[in-house]
Amino acid sequence: MVLLTACAAVAAGCGDDSDDGGGGSDESTRLVVSAASSMTEALESCAPEFGDAENAEVRLSFAGSDELAAQIRQGAKVDAYAAANTRIPDELHAEDLLSKPVEFATNEFVLVVPKDSDISSLEDLTKEGTTLVIGSESVPIGAYTRETLAKLPPDQEKDILANVRSNEPDVKGIIGKLTQGAADAGFVYITDVNATGGDLKAIKLPEDLDPQVTYAAGVVKQAEQPELAKKFVDGLTQGDCADALTDAGFGPAP
């Protein structure tokens, strides 16, 4: 049985290879894209069209940017990588694991609260008893949160951090805790708040605090479909996927 399956797999593999060499328009061409969770809705809406146009199957894998980078470092078979910051793609590029990253979108870092909350500004977060859920230090959203809070007067920063009750490994954890009423406030991207369909509301931060959230993407060096991956990355700045990102609330690249 095992032998049969193994033989079947080998046969299928051979079929793929010969097709690739001959036609180049093989139905089973597969593009694996690892993208930051915040782009889930946008990319899921545009990827099928991209796949149809290129005669390929686009496999999207969403997780925290850092987690996806760790997978790439561990040798995961990924073609394109799109992160919620520029730091991680730059690091991967420096390690010769990723092509030179392209900045393709921006997101707005906001304070998020349940829709009927009394909280209206950062000052309200310093009150004792306010519960805050933020991103873990290792994920971009958590890094932006700490970076932003560090710009506040030290006392205010300290009081706000003292109210943090959970360091979540991704934005979903923050949103989930807020919609379940487990916490009073959090920090996420505006696109995440848009995706909750009104359950939560975003509170914009003063402009001087804005951490400039820029998204960058690149082609993974070990990519099995480097050309297609390049097309996908280019499509993030122009085309269906760029439009989908705009619809989700992303801003244009700086």
Binding site: E67, A70, R165, N167, G173, A182
Partner: peptide, 19 residues
């Protein structure tokens, strides 16, 4: 949730360090 010393058990700490 996950908070050091309060709710971050070893498996959560492992996941936090994974990346």
């Amino acid at each position: 949730g996950s908070f050091q010393g309060i709710t971050q058990t070893v498996p959560l700490a492992i996941y936090d360090r994974f990346s």
